[in-house]
């Protein structure tokens, strides 16, 4: 412990606050990650089945989602954060703190993740869908038992990428007072020149990324045959 305090002299004083910030980041990543996952899977699947030649072909639906994703993806997150303030107030009752950050985080993640899910599902061999249709499966069964089930490895991969980029977004969310590790690094490291606090933030982020990758690889190993 003493050695750690020697390397990071400000940790002794700021340790409890850092822990709070880590917890804030974890909360933001997990909550917005989970919600974005559900929406992303939904929109990604919807894109696949409604596109031309899809099992529920419906070009108006496809075009609307497709364009909405392109537009949302082109808005820089930092701008989205402020653009969405009125909407966040309506949904969450406040635009500050972790609650205030969730809505923009989800809006910033879902379009990106939906597109990634679409790409992962598109890798599924169309022959499997043909065989399932010939077996008399309904479209909804095909979505779950074929498209999603067979693209689990692909979806796990893109989920890892998305979660990691979500950590990145949470650092910006600090600007609406959501706290988190990024906010901690800026406040103490940059503004108060405690460079050791920047380094410790970097290390903590690295650990989080590593944990995500470890879990992802573990799932991959169990699902690829």
């Amino acid at each position: 412990m003493n050695l750690i305090y020697q390397i990071f002299p400000n940790l002794e004083k700021l340790g409890p606050e850092l822990l709070e910030c880590i917890w804030a980041t974890v909360q933001m990543v997990l909550i917005s990650g989970f919600i974005s996952f559900v929406f992303g899977i939904f929109f990604g699947s919807l894109l696949i089945v409604t596109k031309k030649g899809g099992i529920l072909e419906c070009l108006p639906v496809y075009t609307i989602i497709d364009k909405a994703i392109d537009i949302l993806r082109s808005v820089p997150f930092i701008i989205m954060l402020f653009l969405l303030i009125p909407l966040t107030r309506i949904i969450m009752g406040t635009s500050l703190g972790i609650e205030g950050a969730l809505v923009p985080l989800i809006f910033g993640t879902v379009p990106f993740f939906s597109r990634q899910v679409e790409t992962a599902i598109a890798e599924v061999d169309p022959g499997l869908v043909e065989a399932s249709e010939a077996m008399g499966l309904s479209p909804i069964e095909i979505i779950f038992s074929v498209y999603l089930r067979e693209s689990i490895p692909g979806i796990v991969r893109v989920s890892m990428i998305t979660l990691i980029s979500l950590i990145n977004l949470t650092t910006m969310a600090g600007t609406v007072g959501a706290g988190g590790v990024g906010d901690f690094a800026i406040r103490y490291g940059y503004q108060l020149h405690m460079y050791d606090m920047i380094w410790i933030s970097v290390i903590i982020t690295l650990i989080m990324v590593t944990i995500i990758q470890l879990i992802g690889n573990l799932i991959l190993r169990r699902t690829i045959h």
């Binding site: 061999d125 022959g127 499997l128 065989a131 010939a134 077996m135 008399g136 074929v146 067979e150």
Partner: peptide
């Protein structure tokens, strides 16, 4: 369900 079908590339579920 009463009409079976097989294919050139087998179309088995890899998972």
């Amino acid at each position: 369900k009463k009409i079976g079908m097989i294919f050139q590339h087998f179309n088995l579920m890899p998972s």
